[in-house]
Amino acid sequence: MSLAGLFLISFLVVHLGINLLILFDKSLELFNQAAHFMATNPLIQLFQYVLFFGFILHIILGVVLQLQNWAARPVRYQKKGYSEQSYFSKFMIHTGAIVFIFLIIHFANFFVKAKFGHIDSITYDSGTYENLGLLVVELFRDGAYVIFYVIAILLLGFHLDHGFQSAFQSLGLNHSRYTPFIKGLGTVFSILVTLGFIAIPLVIYFSF
């Protein structure tokens, strides 16, 4: 669970890095170039399956754990507890589920289209690529979609905030000196990732 989670976190970093290229180059050349690289490099292609496996593993384990955890308390309390210290930790399955739904829609919008659908090409000095960037920009012109996207990413952020430090704890990596730092790092990381992902639709919506 924790290993799969940490692995997915590393994927998020790469994903965010590439997405942010949209904001730095309105011609979308950089982004399309990167997307092209990701879509054609054999190593990345191979890695895609690993990633896919990581997602599935994380999801299956998460669901199994949750089912076991619900089964561990067949009779609920009448007066709900409020003693949890890590607030977002209470809602991992919920945030996870919504992120999962988002993921499916996200897949349908980008991955499936890019892989199996038809996307117009665009030619730059450096070469001709599928204009995936345009697809992104067009989608984010839809206000409703932006709102949905932003909410999903916020929930992902909450998921990450707990998940990041939790993964270290589960792996037994706890140390009086480093654990507070890891917790802080987790929060900062979650905020940065969330802001990064949210910035893209917002910037596109308001200024493209």
Partner: peptide, 15 residues
């Protein structure tokens, strides 16, 4: 024995 799994909520430490 059927205890649940740890999801690191830390409610145990708090209580």
């Amino acid at each position: 024995l059927g205890f649940g799994n740890c999801t690191n909520t830390y409610a145990c430490e708090a209580e």
